[in-house]
Design a binder for these strands. Structure first.
Lengths: 226, 226
DNA sequence: AAACGTAATTATGAATTCATAATTCAGTCA
DNA sequence: TGACTGAATTATGAATTCATAATTACGTTT
């Protein structure tokens, strides 16, 4: 059957997506109140589906609901970051272990290609291209696990962290280290060493964690701008 | 300040809890359609908050929403189980590693006490008491991590699996093995061996996984009852 | 009698309305 | 002039209403 399965994302699902993007991509700043009315007009919908979407966003942790006081964009505290990274790290480990065994040659080729692009971007100090290639690789590995549960939970956590957006303050030192780690990852992947790849990916994430926390320390010491 | 923080769970949150319980505790069978109207009367609320709750439940994976066809209780497929257990396993590992380092003496004492109760229940072949003590222990370890993110994701996944409810078909052989694994866990915990405890807890979950899948195979071979 | 098509009924998604809690603003008093 | 009280405004949570999609029931036709 050629069931095209007409996808009609039912409005409220659409809204969840768009609102989450707004929050993650920083269209709405942390702590800011979410203006129901305004968003209703922007999206051309009534309050009911929008509020349904906000409930979902709240359960995912992107907004917080205060009784009779509406929704605010969730603040990411330092503690939450400290708690989140280790969880992502063990999920990454699992991603490595599983993907290593399930990736087909086509996927492997794609990853090789993106890895090459990433290295090239690093040499050219092209942050944008680097991040894109980097994301492509992690995305491919994640998809390669064929594990929707793992993928779903990983994506949620990653989105929460992405909001912190430390991209700008990637030190050259850390950048070099990250590239080296990726080289090791590719090596383990080519060798189909599942345990090895898992271990490297976990460590990769923990190092990223350390780098981010250090960057956060620096920015906290720096004078506040408002 | 003695801010008692008056908890008013805002109706829809209350509903999420109660509906989730209904699903997890098997008040609504998998595949069954969720009767909005009926539930509205049961809980004495209108459709709006109930539907908000359903959206949240859907994002958590407990129900599936079909366009213009309402909600059905999610089926747990074999594939989903196969996908879920490894994720829980690595989270358990992390729980072990972290809890091992953060548990205070009081929490440790409670775990020792519940462990003793669990062993006693095993000797008496008292399934109910066994499961309760077992759950208390895992709960205490989870709480002991002081990591809300880890706790939240673990609980969601655990709830999803609990619905499969293989409790009845715990073989005597597997039961014995589980007790032995718990003895090892306590040993590692007393020694404050974080890596060791993590490894044992991961393996414990993977063994549980294997046992459950085997039980599932047996029940699938058995004649269907409808 | 079986199968198809059409009308009636029901249920669902979304908009609107309503009651109430929170916030803002003005006026009063110290 | 500043702080407090209370009314007016606004925003929120929840109920209700409305339009439409889906299901069921019925009648017709072969």
């Amino acid at each position: 059957m050629l069931s095209q399965q007409i996808k009609r994302p039912s409005l409220h699902e659409e809204l969840v997506e768009r609102l989450r993007s707004l929050v993650v991509e920083d269209g709405l700043k942390p702590g800011e109140k979410v203006p129901e009315k305004e968003l209703c007009e922007t999206f051309g919908v009534s309050r009911t589906p929008l509020r349904e979407a906000l409930k979902v966003l709240a359960s995912e942790g992107f907004v917080v609901l205060q009784a009779n006081r509406g929704a605010r964009v969730a603040q990411i505290t330092r503690e939450e970051l400290e708690n989140t990274f280790p969880v992502i790290a063990v999920l990454e480990q699992l991603v490595g272990e599983i993907a290593c065994e399930r990736l087909d040659t086509e996927e492997l080729a794609w990853i090789e290609q993106r890895h090459a692009a990433m290295v090239a971007a690093f040499r050219a100090r092209d942050r944008k291209a680097y991040f894109q290639a980097n994301q492509d690789i992690h995305q491919a590995l994640l998809r390669g696990t064929r594990n929707d549960i793992l993928e779903g939970h990983h994506k949620l956590l990653a989105a929460r962290v992405r909001r912190a957006r430390f991209m700008a303050n990637l030190s050259d030192e850390r950048w070099t280290q990250a590239i080296e780690e990726h080289e090791t990852m590719m090596e383990r992947l080519r060798a189909r060493d599942a345990q090895g790849l898992g271990a490297v990916m976990k460590q990769h994430m923990m190092n990223k964690h350390a780098a981010h926390m250090a960057a956060l320390d620096r920015s906290e010491q720096a004078p506040e701008e408002t």
